[in-house]
Nucleic acid binder design. Sequence first.
DNA 1: CAGATTGCATAATCATCGGTTATGATCGGG
DNA 2: CCCGATCATAACCGATGATTATGCAATCTG
Lengths: 315, 315
Amino acid sequence: MIDAAGLRVMKAIADEGSFTSAANALGFTQPAISQMVRRLEQRTGTVLVERYGRQVRLTEAGQVLARHAVGVLAALDAAEEEITAIAGLRAGRVRLQAFPSSSATLVPRTLAILKARHPDITVTFTEAEPPESLAALRRGDCDVAVAFAYEGGDLGELEEDLSLLVTRRLMDDEVRLVVPRSHAHAGDEAATLSDFSGEEWIAGCPRCRGHLLSLADTAGFRPNVAFETEDYVAQLGLVTAGLGVALVPDLILNAAKHDEVATLPLAPASRRQILAVTTPDLLRVPAVAAALDALCEAAGADPKVSPAQLVGAKG
Amino acid sequence: MIDAAGLRVMKAIADEGSFTSAANALGFTQPAISQMVRRLEQRTGTVLVERYGRQVRLTEAGQVLARHAVGVLAALDAAEEEITAIAGLRAGRVRLQAFPSSSATLVPRTLAILKARHPDITVTFTEAEPPESLAALRRGDCDVAVAFAYEGGDLGELEEDLSLLVTRRLMDDEVRLVVPRSHAHAGDEAATLSDFSGEEWIAGCPRCRGHLLSLADTAGFRPNVAFETEDYVAQLGLVTAGLGVALVPDLILNAAKHDEVATLPLAPASRRQILAVTTPDLLRVPAVAAALDALCEAAGADPKVSPAQLVGAKG
DNA sequence: CAGATTGCATAATCATCGGTTATGATCGGG
DNA sequence: CCCGATCATAACCGATGATTATGCAATCTG
């Protein structure tokens, strides 16, 4: 019944004192004001302005509208300002979820970049394994999920349902075999998995364990998994103690101290892809786009820095 | 840029969780919501809803709009409610100005009627002589002015400029000659003004004095005005004390005690019209219209009661 | 007092907005 | 694997809300 335009007009009349001035103030012509008032009057069924001679005055009802206009228009302006702040990255929120081993290096670097570039957007970070983070993304509880996908026997097979989602490849994370320094193969240039079929194995998270089993299956053995822990530092400790060998991604080795163990590249090499995942719509949200850019940059997936350089520099 | 309709839609989506439900809640069809959202999105340049599969969720920007919608829509409702209250006489204001001698009878009766009939409208009353009350009306500081106009030598001549104003005739107020009980003509049925050319006169307000001079001029003499006071009770007191004679309207005589004096109708009779004056626009304001009706009723100008009856009953 | 000026109202016109119905595409469930 | 639910799109259409042109009345001015 009453809309913002009507209120704006009433307030302009109250402020300016005449239809003509109100029209000028609003950038309209005088007849526009005339009929706007007439429409308002017949909509509300009340007299809003009192015409006396060639001057107009607001009636009580008109003053009521003009008075309310102040608050309503202010609220609308505030909403608009908030929206444009979000659009202009002067505000906004990104809810990031990343799997634990990325929290050590990738995420902190991303947050630093984001903070430096857009200090006014607030970033929320939650540690979550890909199944949960992707579920949160689907549920709407998360804007960007950092996940990983092993390149299994059949290359490119992603272990999660990524339909309806968009992914951005951040980096390839090579998986290495970690053995004690004292191990017979510790000095090898590369490790052939079948050489370690008799070892005791230390497995990581469920999906990593699945990957280990898959690789071993290809190599023709079934590994003897003696320990399971999601804590990579603990895995390295167990290897150091000579209690077994483990497959550990580069991403971890770059972040955790591992002087006491030997890390061998696999032959043939095995990698996992680190992916940033979001939805097509969120991709167009400035803050989310900025977060994705920061992730790429932190991962070295930016055109200027090739993934190889980055991995090489740290390995 | 953002209007109330858009906010209403965003809030409905937030509340209902889907376009279809929102459309039902608002009484629209689903495509209406679809394109409303699209318009809003391209106006603001931001993504407002996130489509995931066949469900929609608000983005942060969308939630901002939905959040602001609550306040804005509440304010609009409040404004609308105030307007309809005024239209329905459940609220509203009338600023009444009346000349002093009407304050005694006419105005109190009017206020009582108004209060009984529409207890929720607030009436402001200011005592003012017609020139000032009409000026206030023109200035917009008053909604209804109760004025009087003498029917001078040339009948129907109104002493005020009533262009642009509307008048409603409330009653005819006959002017009587007031003389001491002891006066030689105290027992006459009617008074011929020329018989009193030698008297000392007690004049009232400037316009009443003007009327006296006009009547005397017609009767062929120039009255000797010994006293001037706007206080009618004082006038009666002066007459009682034998200090002179005075022309006093019936309206006063009906209200003030005057046992000690004789009141004679003039021959030929002289009257003043009591008028309610307002502007054409204000006439359509419910509270003003109600006030006018009450005035008419209080004055007996209502069709059911003729002015003659009323005046006769009280004289 | 007449004429110029000012300010609102009205008429005719036109673009856009904001709704409708009809239909298509796609996701999720039986 | 098909069906139902949900959103998107297209075509259409009336009402809204602006414009220009003009009229009329009040006020100011010489």
